[in-house]
Design a binder for these strands. Structure first.
Lengths: 205, 205
DNA sequence: CTTAAAAAATGAATTCATTCAATCTTTTTT
DNA sequence: AAAAAAGATTGAATGAATTCATTTTTTAAG
């Protein structure tokens, strides 16, 4: 049986995470005070800092859970991709983008991305960055799979191409989060246009 | 002749900008307190806020001047580009990357990028974002120029391709700023590899 | 079962960015 | 040139994140 201490720790951790996620959802990141999170989680402010390095860290913890779901959803596409390069890319990217806004607002994404850049060494920044790397790999894996199926030419550097597609969809998502009026459809259309040249050229003839 | 008020204003603005740039360089962004900037600029804290919306805004003001220089340096390459796609891209990107670290540390770049994402509506965030857009255009212009010279195939969507190259170099620069041990050469090598497939495929045969 | 050591929790104190009502300076009007 | 209006400056007050010396709780040792 787990020691009392370990059980209490896991318990408090969950309470903090739940309290923070709920508050961020309700009032947004900036208006959520550590004091409020602590109160909801029934701990003191000091204790909060025993569990998370700073306020940004707990936002990245909640956002990371979200990214894990996106990653899982992407696996389905990579397993059985549409039979054309553009089709497969649009499908995978569509999954990413559609999932992204389900729980998190643009404001929360902006804050999360900003923190991950600014404090890359904090524990949950590392986790977030690592998940980003996995998403990138996933795109490369998709290209590799298409190569295996003879959809993509054999002499193509799948990893390089995958990274390029990923970096593009990633930058464009940041752009999207920055512009409040930009819609998901706007985003997808722009990314599609950007992807088309490379997608067309790597197709096996 | 300019009114006294206008002259004083320009004067104070310059003093603030100089004081901030010097402090950021000396002690880094986080350790530079508004009170210190105000003291060096011989104004009060309150006055600082009449000139800049917040602390992040003045960092972006200094970084924007830097980006303007990069943009100007890039023009030279676009005017007379090397005769191959990879050569031209490497040259332009080399100019961007080499300039970037001349005045600003990775930490300052990280902070600047983070602020531009988090508060996209502040005056100097808009300016910074606009300059980013110009850099992106510059890459597209380069591709267009290569098309004019018959180096790039005629049926290529130069704007889309340029955006893809730019978004890639941009994301990779962010990655570079996040990893303290990563060198400029590491960065250039990785970007080169990523660019190669698209660069090769768009070449006119 | 007591006691000592280790681990966690606590909240008052500190530190800074930011605000704003009061004051001062410049410009415009009469 | 005096008075009124407009524009700027000022620094003390506010509010929130983060720190840290103390206290409390849990575990391990005797």
């Amino acid at each position: 049986m787990t020691g009392l201490r370990a059980r209490q720790k896991a318990d408090r951790n969950r309470r903090i995470l739940d309290a923070a996620a709920a508050l961020f959802r309700d009032v947004g990141y900036d208006s959520a005070r550590i004091e409020d999170i602590a109160e909801r989680a029934e701990i003191s402010v000091g204790t909060f800092y025993n569990y998370y390095e700073n306020k940004g860290d707990i936002l990245l913890a909640t956002v990371s859970m979200e990214v894990e779901e996106v990653l899982a959803a992407g696996r389905a596409i990579v397993e059985t991709p549409p039979a054309s390069v553009m089709g497969a890319l649009d499908a995978l990217i569509g999954v990413y983008y559609d999932h992204s806004l389900y729980y998190l607002s643009k404001e929360m994404w902006r804050t999360a991305m900003a923190i991950a850049i600014q404090q890359p060494e904090s524990p949950f920044s590392k986790r977030y960055t690592e998940l980003d790397g996995r998403l990138c790999e996933q795109v490369s894996t998709l290209i590799l799979k298409l190569k295996g199926k003879g959809v993509v030419a054999i002499d193509i550097d799948a990893e390089a191409v995958g990274e390029m597609f990923f970096n593009n969809l990633n930058t464009m998502f940041t752009e999207f989060a920055k512009r409040e009026p930009m819609t998901l459809d706007d985003l997808k259309a722009r990314v599609s246009r950007q992807n088309r040249p490379l997608a067309t050229l790597i197709a096996a003839r």
